[in-house]
């Protein structure tokens, strides 16, 4: 108990990490609401959801999964690198993570614009003439991947800030809470995708 007494001047790494975890819980429940909606509509319209899922390109989905999983590893490695005081390697690994995230977003952009070409977007006449379940499937698809893509963007910004701070030595071997928390955030983005991928692309 002796170290439980912390005043403001004392930098408390553990507290920062715990705060981040609790924030991640809220993110989890934010997406959780959407997963609940998905679950309800999937039970109600399972045939339509099959049809909807088969219209998504599972190759792009798989590719994006590989990008995100790999980026999750590189960001975890960058933390190891900074802990071992290997600044250049950390910089390289964070850059790779941002690049993979950019690839993910590019893929997503092509995927969405492809759908838009076929006039599949919320409120479109094509969608309104589809089966009710398919309409809801695409509504969920846009809402879930859209919210997820927003998180990817935020993650990219966070990691870019880290890039600068590592370069300046503000994030270093002794103080790496920012990188640690950004990595945790990035892993959450990955976690959400791990569930989104089979639910949207695979269950056909």
């Amino acid at each position: 108990m002796s170290d439980s007494h912390n005043n403001i001047e004392h930098f408390d790494n553990e507290a920062g990490k715990m705060g981040m975890w609790i924030f991640l819980f809220t993110e989890l429940f934010l997406f959780g609401g959407l997963f609940l909606v998905y679950a309800v509509f999937r039970t109600k319209y399972s045939a339509d959801f099959h049809a909807g899922a088969s219209e998504l390109n599972s190759f792009i989905g798989t590719l994006n999964t590989v990008f995100l999983l790999t980026s999750s590893m590189t960001v975890a490695m960058s933390l190891t690198a900074i802990q071992k005081n290997n600044k250049n390697l950390a910089l390289f690994l964070v850059s790779v993570t941002i690049m993979l995230a950019a690839l993910f977003m590019m893929n997503k952009y092509f995927e969405w614009s492809h759908k838009f070409e076929f006039k599949i977007y919320p409120g479109s006449s094509v969608l309104k003439n589809m089966n009710r379940g398919e309409l809801l499937f695409f509504g969920l698809y846009y809402m879930m991947t859209g919210l997820h893509a927003l998180h990817v963007l935020v993650g990219m910004i966070l990691l870019s800030i880290n890039l600068v701070k590592i370069k300046r030595g503000v994030v270093n071997m002794k103080r790496y809470l920012l990188l640690e928390n950004s990595a945790l955030y990035w892993h959450l983005v990955d976690l959400i995708w791990i569930f989104l991928f089979p639910l949207l692309y695979l269950i056909t």
């Binding site: 108990m1 170290d3 439980s4 553990e14 715990m18 798989t62 999964t65 590989v66 999983l69 790999t70 999750s72 590893m73 975890a76 490695m77 933390l79 190891t80 802990q83 071992k84 991928f197």
Partner: peptide
């Protein structure tokens, strides 16, 4: 939660193994 003062550093190889497992599962 007050008591872990030493941080564990994950090795590069262990992280790589986890990635391989994840890709296999995918």
């Amino acid at each position: 939660d007050h008591m872990n003062n030493e941080t564990h550093i994950s090795s590069y190889s262990s992280l790589a193994i986890v990635l391989i497992i994840l890709l296999l599962l995918t």
